[in-house]
């Protein structure tokens, strides 16, 4: 309930989005139909997008709005560990952190989810029993996405069977960039089916898509294939989420919702480390997609160190003094 009022206060003057009541998803049965859909999208004005994102970054949130925004951002964090050296104990401590980010202050909201590799889903599931924190798992040959469909589906099935609420899949960028759009679409559809009731987040890896035009087309492709979320990055390549990319993906989610009635979430991942950046992204969300997306249901940050900076800023707002970074547990 508290979430609603929080969203409302930050969202004053947000973008107006008219979403039809009844969903009418585009019917795509052939690659030609998919190409026609993507060809109908206009090109992105890259300079304009960069300028718009830079302009929005100058907005400043103060006082109670800032406090609300920090709480909202904490509730949107997918606390992530995707290292080869991950251990069950590390995942358990991450789960404890996601559940109670600041044990010294019970009013701190929980994070949205923890995000781990499939083999650690069961550990996370167990550690989070009784909490509202979701378990997300990367799958489909993360992070490169270079495996056969059978291997990817087995990866997804394992994660879902272990209890993942959300699956973060990667698209095959090689296929997308060389124009095999139908293959990418079919893979997403197949993974969507393998997910069952689990939510599907589709990672576009925007750093490898290079142009904003490609980001817009990939976003639409993933949404048409019934992704629940579109996500920027794996965090494993040099360029991750950037404000212009976030702007373009949020525009795509908004336009898709207006055209089809289906609301798709957006997840930014990789390289977002400071509370200041996170709040700037919330401004972009509000001004681009509108208030509906200002909720963990439709907007997420995939991050690890970001959470501690959000907690430090939250504590600063409440106590009026700058705090030690060590006040909050490392991950």
């Amino acid at each position: 309930m508290e979430q609603v009022s929080t969203t409302h206060r930050i969202a004053s003057g947000s973008a107006v989005v008219r979403i039809p009541d009844t969903a009418s998803l585009p019917v795509i049965e052939t690659e030609a139909a998919l190409r026609a859909l993507l060809a109908s999208l206009s090109g992105v004005d890259a300079v304009g997008a960069a300028a718009r994102a830079a302009k929005l970054a100058t907005r400043s949130l103060k006082q109670s709005t800032k406090r609300d925004a920090l709480d909202l951002a904490i509730s949107m964090v997918d606390l992530t560990t995707l290292e080869g050296a991950d251990t069950p104990d590390r995942v358990r401590s991450l789960c404890a952190k996601a559940w109670r980010p600041d044990p010294a202050d019970p009013s701190t909201p929980s994070a949205a989810a923890v995000c781990v590799y499939p083999d650690l889903v069961a550990t996370a599931r167990e550690a989070l029993a009784g909490s509202a924190v979701a378990v997300a798992s990367v799958a489909t040959a993360f992070p490169s996405g270079r495996a056969s469909l059978a291997v990817k589906l087995a990866d997804v099935a394992e994660a879902v069977a272990a209890g993942a609420d959300e699956v973060d899949m990667v698209i095959d960028r090689g296929a997308f960039l060389s124009g095999r759009l139908g293959q990418v679409f079919d893979e997403i559809v197949a993974v969507r089916e393998a997910c069952g009731t689990a939510h599907l987040k589709v990672i576009l890896e925007t750093g490898e898509l290079v142009t904003l035009d490609a980001v817009r087309r990939a976003s639409w492709l993933a949404m048409a294939a019934r992704a629940d979320f579109i996500k920027t990055s794996t965090g494993k390549v040099a360029v991750s989420a950037t404000p212009p990319v976030a702007l373009v993906m949020l525009e795509a989610a908004r336009d898709f919702a207006e055209a089809t009635g289906r609301v798709v979430g957006v997840k930014l991942a990789g390289g977002i480390r400071s509370a200041k950046e996170a709040l700037r992204y919330l401004v972009v969300v509000n001004e681009t997609a509108g208030a509906l997306w200002l909720s963990p249901r439709y907007f997420r940050f995939g991050a690890s160190s970001l959470l501690n900076d959000l907690l430090a800023q939250r504590t600063k707002q409440r106590r009026g003094v700058y705090v030690r970074p060590e006040l909050f547990s490392g991950d």
Binding site: G320, V321, Y322, L327
Partner: peptide
């Protein structure tokens, strides 16, 4: 005062 209060 901000310096004196700063916990780090």
């Amino acid at each position: 005062p901000v310096l004196a209060d700063h916990e780090d």
